[in-house]
Amino acid sequence: MIRTGSAAESSSGNPPVVKSGYYPSSGSDDFPPSAINTSFFTHVFYAFLLPSNVTFKFELSNETVVLLSNFTTTLRHKTPPVKTLLSIGGGAGDNPELPRIFAHMVSNPSSRSNFIDSAIEVARKFGFDGLDLDWEFPQSPKEMKDLGHLLKQWRREIKKEAKATDSHPLLLTAAVYFSADFFLSDVTRSYPIKSMEKYLDWANVMCFDYHGAWSNITGPNAALFDPNSNVNSVYGLRSWINGGMTPKKLVMGLPLYGRTWELKDPNDHGIGDIAIGPGPGGGQLSFNDLEVLNQESGATVVYDMDTVSVYSFNGSSWIAFDDGLTITSKIGFAQALGLRGYFFWALGQDSDWKISAQASKSWIL
């Protein structure tokens, strides 16, 4: 098993860069772990595992046991090997009950203990190097406070388990909203940054999904800047740093997919124009698929300097995405801010590892 250090250890000196990606287990038939090119990554997250909504423990089916075992065994023996983390949770769109399950789990020490002990047990059993919490998203100030309690208790149990087994402590990370504050919500709330700074090895900041077909206005999926709005990665990452998170405990999220719209008028095809619904792919396309579509359709591709994003249009179809150029710019910005690294959502959506390779090459050591 590939070992790594504790939160205290990684926060001192100059911690190693994180070049990572989430691996959706739901696509394992078409994209098995053996297909991952580990030369571009340091860490890969298995996404996702869900706790029981009754016991808050992990009740694994035979199929899941096989998937977990295959994932860690395969990546441990790849050249080069990568560290693996087990990501718990996922988007509420896939499981509408998930936010409620997490809210209930964190509400008292006993249910938190059931969850934590079971998570550590599964991670060790299958040879993972760490655990990742993907709670999208705490819905109230109380849930945010309870999240802080969870992380404190989780870190304590990780240290205790490592000492008892004479092992290096498991990594503990979390996937979080692009901003430390939910300023767009009717319920004002902020992450418990002091607890996150103290107990996490790092946080994966989801710097994407800023615009999509849920709105009838076109916009960049992952704007680095935005002259008209605070919905952009610069604002979000700085809100975390200004709130007290050490830059070396922040990892910038990058999308390997685009958002699509159907334009109301094909002649109005810029950022901020009117759409009437989702475009190709039902509103979302992998980078691989959108690149093929753009080439085959002869779409016009536009680089938008104001937002550091790319969009394409052909007839009434409009796609917002990132390419090698915008990813390079974002990597440079992440390094200028002093961040720990970056992660992709999601592995298997790249085109012959084109974006992944460009990102890895762009991070200057």
Rank of each mutant, 00 (worst) to 15 (best):
Y210V: 01
G212T: 05
G212L: 04
G212H: 09
A213K: 05
W214R: 07
S215Q: 11
I217D: 03
T218D: 11
A222T: 05
F225R: 08
P227W: 00
S229A: 15
S233C: 08
V234F: 15
G236H: 12
L237S: 00
R238A: 10
I241P: 07
G244Q: 07
M245G: 12
P247F: 06
P247W: 04
P247D: 11
L250T: 10
L250S: 08
L250A: 07
V251E: 13
L254W: 06
P255G: 12
W261L: 04
L263V: 09
D265C: 09
P266E: 00
P266Q: 01
N267Y: 08
N267R: 11
D268W: 07
H269P: 01
A275S: 15
A275I: 05
A275W: 07
G277L: 03
P278E: 15
P278I: 07
G279D: 00
P280A: 11
P280F: 03
P280M: 06
Q284T: 14
D289H: 05
D289N: 10
E291D: 11
E291F: 01
V292F: 06
L293Q: 09
Q295G: 06
E296L: 11
E296W: 08
E296C: 04
S297G: 09
Y303R: 06
D304P: 05
D304I: 02
M305Y: 11
F313Y: 13
N314D: 01
N314I: 02
N314L: 01
S316L: 01
S317G: 02
I319P: 02
A320C: 12
A320S: 15
F321C: 02
D322V: 09
L325Y: 14
T328D: 11
S329C: 08
S329Y: 12
I331P: 12
I331L: 09
G338C: 07
L339S: 05
L339C: 05
F344T: 13
W345G: 13
A346Q: 15
A346F: 14
A346N: 15
L347G: 15
